[in-house]
Amino acid sequence: MLVDSHCHLDFPDFQSRLPEVLAAASAAGVGRLVTISTHVSRFESYRALAEAHDSIFCTVGTHPHNAAAEPDVPTERLIELSVHPRCVAIGEAGLDYHYDKSPHDVQQRVFRTHIEAARETGLPLVIHARNADEDMIRILSEEMRRGRFDAVLHCFSSGEKLARVGVELGLSVSFSGILTFRNSEEIRRIAAAIPHERLLVETDAPYLAPVPHRGKTNEPAFVAHTAHVLADVTGMTDQDVATLTTANFYRLFSKAAAADAASGQALAS
């Protein structure tokens, strides 16, 4: 079985066909999905999805694109919302200097607030990083010195240095459909060098559909294609990758592991 550790099931792309999307995921062997928060103000929608479907967990956080719209959400509010039993992580939060939809200083401040929430709750932080490697490395290094926290570099598309520093700091690294793209040789080289116990897979659906679905709306079932390419670059079988990344998911997202264990629904590898 596989886990799609990062998707956006609340987006309009899925509103009219969510049952179909979830059925396709199940048929493809994708047994757990994490629908990711982009606005703290919309937490109710993520929570409702997770409450309605045993296969779905959720997170709470502000995407860097939306940092200017939610610049002052306090750590205490993130902690309060994260208490929900189906909320298994903080984020996604981080830095995105590609689109610059929020000022850099605001992104950085909001990111540090999320780091503190992850540190205080013990929940992993889902990190968005795009075209901001040096600031990301600086902030992660500074904050880790202030106190340890768990995190994943989601949808990894950055450089080798950020991957290396992230691993040195104890972070996990998650790969999306980008891994399957023809021009992603560097990302595949980076993936091959990540310690196996730090690897995760995701879709970031509805974005970044993998080959052979590139150009279409992405959906959780397609994480199997990314996992197949990850198997190729790491020298594992598809089953090895499914077993490994599911175990890695439950280790990092330990609240999901506890919830599934309590309900007797933990995924079989």
Rank of each mutant, 00 (worst) to 15 (best):
H228F: 13
M236E: 12
A68H: 13
S172R: 12
S141H: 06
N248I: 07
K161N: 14
S55T: 15
P74Y: 09
V110K: 07
H114I: 10
E76A: 15
T113K: 11
E120T: 14
C7Q: 02
V88I: 15
H8R: 07
A52G: 15
V110S: 08
R42S: 14
F253I: 06
E142I: 02
C155A: 13
T75F: 05
F249N: 02
A118G: 04
D100C: 14
T59Q: 01
E197Y: 09
S176N: 08
T245K: 07
H114V: 08
I127C: 01
F57D: 01
I194Q: 00
L230F: 12
P103M: 07
A48I: 12
L153K: 02
V229G: 01
F222R: 07
V223D: 03
I79C: 13
Q15K: 15
H154C: 07
F111Q: 06
N131Y: 04
S16I: 08
A257H: 12
E70W: 06
I127P: 00
A261I: 09
T113H: 11
D105A: 15
L18D: 02
S157M: 11
E202Q: 04
V126T: 05
D238A: 14
M236W: 14
D54L: 15
F57G: 01
S102Y: 02
L200I: 05
S174C: 09
D133L: 06
E44V: 11
V40L: 13
F222I: 08
L81V: 13
R112H: 11
V223Y: 04
D150Y: 08
I139L: 13
A209Y: 01
H225A: 07
S263V: 09
E197H: 11
E92I: 11
H213F: 14
V30A: 05
A231H: 04
L162C: 05
K101D: 15
V34Y: 05
G166V: 01
V106H: 09
I115W: 04
D10V: 15
T62L: 14
G235L: 04
H8Q: 08
R146F: 10
P85Y: 12
H128L: 00
E51T: 14
M1W: 09
M136P: 01
V126K: 01
P210D: 02
A256T: 03
D204A: 06
L95K: 01
P103F: 06
F11Q: 05
G147Y: 04
